Simulated assay, not measured.
Amino acid sequence: MKRIKVTPTWCFSDEEGHRLDTHLLSLLGAVHRHGKLTHAAEEAGISYRHAWNLLHQGGEFFGVTLVEMARGRGARLSTLGEKLLWAEQRATARLSPQLDSLSSELNLAIQQHQEGVHPVLRLHASHGFAIELLPQHLGELQLDLQYCSPLEALAALNRNGCDLAGCHLPRGTVGEKARRKYRRLLKPRYQRLVGFIARQQGLMVAPGNPLGIDGVAALAERQITFINRQASSGTRELLDSLLDEAGIVSSNVNGYEIEEYTHSAVAAYVAAGMADAGFGVEAAAQRFGLGFVPLATEDYLLACNKRALKEPKFDDFLQVLRSVAFQKAVQGLPGYSPSQCGSVIEIGSFL
């Protein structure tokens, strides 16, 4: 089944209407990864001559060199080149939940128009690497995926606005705040939980961890700058619980009030050198070449109405979660593992 994905595209133009080739940013990213223009051009799918011309045009457009080249030292991004690259990666990471939700809506509309009305599984959940895998494994099962916070997802489930609602529960004492919240929101008599994945959360730091950041206590050291997640996210709630457990007042964390909206956006912020540490999943840290200090394990679960489990579309969905292919894909994500994946769980026993 054909699936459409919406991705952002940058356009640089000046007051005279001059525009830059859109290949420039992909070329800068390839230079950053390889350190050689020949390899960068090959990855970007353009000739060496075209790559050289692109860099020359970019330099003239901005009035500043974007890539510094020296005999025997290869190629490296200039200060402006790095800023352009990290700005693009941060913007893409920020926009990805909204664009993925839009992609889901478009694919659903196209499929229903082409094939008639078919059962649709409506999933509301926070953005994450494992959730991103689902559309690739569902085959003919249509998924209406909307990204939102756990509180928003559970509220939608309780008003019949979705079929499945994502929620995360940290293991151990640090998860007690989340347990109290879910006891108020979940209805053990009428609802069930579906096991999904477990994931490691912790601090993303510069490669090699040069500042020796080993836990949340280090965040209270004023010379360390931090980048946070938004207040509505489950990741932010987990961080707050870890700070409370360590006896750290959030106002003592330099950068606590600065927020990003995805794990990847936090990682891109740290990778750009704009903060010394951020909090999120290991998969995001590895994707941006960062170090990672694990601090907590949390279960990511999907809540649903008990009666809905009798519907054929739910049986199809559970079979996907239980499949070797999906669980192998989850295991390929750093810090992720299938956890009771596809199992139906009594709410009372889990909480």
Rank of each mutant, 00 (worst) to 15 (best):
Q142M: 14
N158W: 05
D276Q: 10
E42M: 12
L351I: 15
L95N: 06
T173E: 15
S251H: 13
L121C: 10
C162F: 08
A198G: 10
Q201I: 03
A271Q: 03
F12I: 03
H118E: 15
Q201M: 07
F129W: 11
R73W: 09
I248L: 12
E43N: 06
P294L: 08
M274N: 12
H168R: 12
I227T: 08
H32I: 04
R49V: 15
G202E: 02
K187M: 09
H118T: 14
D14V: 07
E282S: 03
L193D: 00
P119D: 13
H39W: 08
G63S: 08
Q111N: 12
W86C: 00
R322Q: 15
D21W: 00
L80I: 11
H32D: 14
R322C: 08
A91L: 14
V320M: 12
Q98R: 14
I46V: 15
F314R: 01
Q223C: 09
L143E: 06
G332Y: 05
F279L: 06
R229I: 07
S104Q: 05
Y147A: 02
Q201L: 11
L301V: 10
Y256H: 12
E15H: 12
A220L: 05
S349L: 13
A296Q: 07
A198D: 05
R236Q: 11
G234K: 03
L321S: 03
A308P: 02
G280E: 01
L106K: 05
G273H: 07
P119R: 12
Q111P: 01
L25A: 04
F288T: 02
C341K: 00
K177F: 09
E257A: 15
A155L: 11
H18S: 14
G247A: 09
N158S: 14
G116D: 07
L186F: 05
V174M: 04
P207K: 09
G59L: 05
R179W: 09
I227D: 00
V293T: 07
I110D: 08
R3T: 12
